[in-house]
Design a binder for these strands. Structure first.
Length: 211
DNA sequence: AGTGCGATTGACT
DNA sequence: GTCAATCGCACTA
């Protein structure tokens, strides 16, 4: 075989998180997902980022999109835990969520920020900026960086495909997790259901909530 | 059929 | 710090 220049050895694609490993409880899932990986397959490119900020949206929670019952729009929230729910906010920004609880129960976890780990050049291209801090800090930004839209709504995030969840063995201890009220909502705004990795520069939100 | 309103972001004073 | 863009949906009539 003639020598052929290969790109830098690609990291193997992490295998998906087992659904059985996901806590069914929505708040527990929001904490569990901190430090885990989001993998996005775009052709030959595998984008990856570490989850550094989440919010829980519970059953009986007026801020949860499933609060008023199941519709065509929010149906993915009612899938068994570990499925993808994508929402278009303000007509401008897509939001990536992980469904929680049992099938038929409408609840989920919003992924609010990632730390970019691989595919940074592709993220920069999609985001139109070179600033690493601006690639995936915020729910709308990370969705744009990973090219996430309603086409991914309802897919299984526990199966390797266009988008899935993984784990690189990073440990997150309870002391490194911060907690605050959720950002940008008006209903049930006082519930402390936002979780983030303390001190991580890719966490979004105002400083007063990130202490 | 019309209206109000977001789980945001980027541009600008 | 302020503010407009933008659009699908739920709600009213």
């Amino acid at each position: 075989m003639p020598a052929r220049r290969e790109p830098v050895a690609a990291l193997p694609a992490p295998r998906p998180l087992a659904r059985a490993a996901l806590p069914a409880d929505t708040t527990a899932l929001a904490r569990f997902l901190l430090g885990k990986l989001v993998l996005r397959r775009l052709g030959r490119t595998l984008l990856r980022g570490r989850i550094v900020e989440t919010e829980a949206y519970l059953v009986g929670d007026a801020a949860c999109h499933a609060f008023r019952g199941r519709t065509l729009r929010n149906a993915a929230l009612f899938l068994e835990r570990g499925h993808c729910y994508v929402y278009l906010a303000y007509g401008t920004s897509y939001m990536l969520n992980v469904s929680s609880e049992r099938a038929g129960i409408g609840a989920g976890v919003l992924i609010r920020a990632l730390e970019p780990l691989a595919g940074v050049a592709e993220m920069q291209e999609r985001r139109g900026t070179a600033r690493r801090l601006d690639l995936t800090r915020g729910p709308g930004r990370l969705a744009q960086a990973l090219q996430i839209d309603r086409g991914l709504d309802g897919i299984d995030l526990c199966t390797e495909g266009p988008l899935w969840l993984g784990d690189d063995g990073t440990l997150v201890d309870a002391a490194s997790i911060g907690r605050s009220i959720r950002i940008g909502i008006t209903k049930d705004a006082e519930r402390p259901l936002r979780f983030y990795l303390r001190g991580n520069p890719f966490v979004s939100g105002p400083r007063r909530l990130n202490g």
